[in-house]
Amino acid sequence: MIWLVALMVFIMLLAAVSMLLVESQVSAVALSAAVSLALSILFVILQAPDVAMTEAVVGSGLSAIILALTLNRIHRFKQTTTAETENDA
């Protein structure tokens, strides 16, 4: 059980740190969703299902969508999956 908590905390912190360091914006958004997902699992372990659900829905769901929409509006990133061209980071 303790290893599950340790794993989640490790994933969370790793995702948070790499989110700051990673170059491309899109992967940063994905990493922020990952952080919030790991966090919601932690909440489940901490016996807080309500909060876990909210964190999952709002954290990785809604905020990820909003961030992606903003990226869309800002970068007009192309459907093609070429790497980020704008070095706006």
């Binding site: 700051l20 914006q25 922020s32 980071a89």
Partner: peptide
């Protein structure tokens, strides 16, 4: 943009 992420 990154700042808003960090704030979250």
């Amino acid at each position: 943009f990154r700042m808003v992420l960090a704030l979250a």
